[in-house]
Each structure stands twice: as structure tokens, then as C-alpha cells.
Simulated assay, not measured.
Amino acid sequence: MDLTWDEVDPRRHPFDSSSALAVISRLEPDGDRPTRPAGSVVSAPDLRWEGAEGGRWLGAMAEAITARFGRWAVGWQWTRVDGGPVVRGWCCSTHSLTTPAETLPRIADALCDWRAWLEDLAERFDRFPLGDLPDEEREGAWERATVHLVTHVVARVEAHDAWYDHCEQVLTWFLTRWGVPADRARTLVEEAIGGRFGSWVEPDGKLVQDVAEHLAVTIEIDRL
């Protein structure tokens, strides 16, 4: 999911989680409401409904949420099945899209969970105030921050399928937060990881440390 830190930074985009369900309920699109056919969720009628009425409703709902809250909100559907963080309120359309009474609270919970994750990351980014450090301390701070963030993302996504995509994204966001241009940040992160993170495999401490050292050194060389 291609999102920049400016697009998701909680400081730029106010949000009241206590009113999320009420707001989302008012955004519900007109037309077919999500009432799944009776029977198995893998039956032929069910799959046809999911690809037609259910899919249209969900697509319209997603567009309305993004229009109301901003682009940061698209992450409410980004689950670990797709390499994203564990958004606990939503699994997928097959299992989470049922009746309006059940589906709207699930969407609100997922949006709040995604927002909480972004707020958690913002707080962690600020634990490493790179902008205020003297030059001789910056490389060590980049390194410590990278180890901390990789470890935190792995714990959140449980090293699921393609978990490294979001890990790279979080590191890119962190670099961007502290002044590295987004395109350059993405390149530096990709080069530091070098394809060494894999699906379903939690990286060991030595690998994480090596990635952190590589990234810290190249960031500081880039500043010269």
C-alpha cells in the first residue's frame, strides 16, 4: 500500500475514535446493503454476491471513508494477509462482510485499530529525535532506531506473508520523518535490507543489527 508519511502522520490528520462508528454509519452508501446469502461463505451464491452486490457496497464504503477522513484511512482493510499490520477489526470481505449491524462496527474498529498503529509509530519515531542530535551521535541513533522499529513491526505482523513490505514502509516513514527525502529514503531502506527478509521467517538479531548498521552508515554518508 503506497502511502507517504505526510499522508498518514497523525499530527497532520485529526481523528476522533470515539465518534468513528457514528460517522461511518452516516457514510453508508445507498443501494444494496451487505446481507450475505444464507449458507456457506464459499458457496456459489455467496461468491457471486461477494463479487457483485457485496463488493459494490464495500467499494463504495471504502471510497466514502477515504473521502471523509483522508488518504491515511485506506489502511483499515490492510491486514496481515496482504503483508500489512494486524488490523484486528477486519479480516477480509469473505469473513467480515455480513449484515450492516455487524459490518459497520467492524469497519469502525478496523479504522480505529489502523489509526492507533499510526499513532504508536509516530510516538516511537519521536523517541529518536535525529534533528536535535550532534553529528557524532546521529549514526548510533539511526542504528538503534532501526533495530527498535524492525523488532516492533515483526512483533505486530507476526512475520506473516510479505511482512517485510510494511517493515520497509515503516523504516521509510521514519527516515522521512527526520528529513530524508521520501524517494531517497525508500532506496536506502531497500538497499540496507537487500532482499534478506522473507515471508513467514522472523529475522534473527544478527541480521536485524546488520541491516541497522548498513542503513545508519549510508544515511550519514548521504548527508556529506
Rank of each mutant, 00 (worst) to 15 (best):
V153S: 02
Q169P: 02
V154Y: 07
A110V: 07
A182C: 03
F174L: 04
W90V: 05
H166E: 08
V87N: 05
R106P: 04
R127E: 14
E190W: 09
H166D: 01
D82F: 15
C167H: 06
V189W: 03
R177V: 04
Y164Q: 03
W163F: 15
H166T: 06
V87F: 14
A185T: 02
T146Q: 06
H160D: 14
V157I: 02
T94M: 10
G83A: 11
A159M: 11
T98F: 03
D183H: 12
A101P: 03
L104K: 14
A141W: 11
T146P: 00
D161L: 14
E123R: 15
V150C: 02
A110G: 08
S96D: 03
S93P: 08
E168Q: 11
V147H: 05
S199E: 13
I107E: 05
W142I: 08
A162I: 02
A185Y: 08
L121C: 08
V170C: 00
R138Q: 13
T99S: 15
D165R: 09
A182I: 07
G179R: 09
R144Y: 05
V153F: 09
V189P: 00
A159N: 10
E119R: 07
H148Q: 10
D132N: 10
C91A: 15
I193V: 14
R156N: 06
A145M: 06
R88A: 14
R184A: 00
E119D: 12
L104S: 10
G179P: 00
H152V: 10
E158R: 08
R177G: 01
A192P: 00
R156M: 06
Y164A: 03
D165A: 06
L130A: 12
G195M: 10
V201C: 11
W163D: 01
P100D: 08
E139H: 13
H152C: 10
R186Q: 13
D183A: 11
D183T: 12
L121M: 13
T151W: 05
D126E: 14
R184P: 01
W173Y: 13
Y164R: 01
V87R: 02
A110H: 04
Q169M: 13
S93I: 10
F128H: 13
S96R: 10
R177E: 07
L133F: 14
G83V: 06
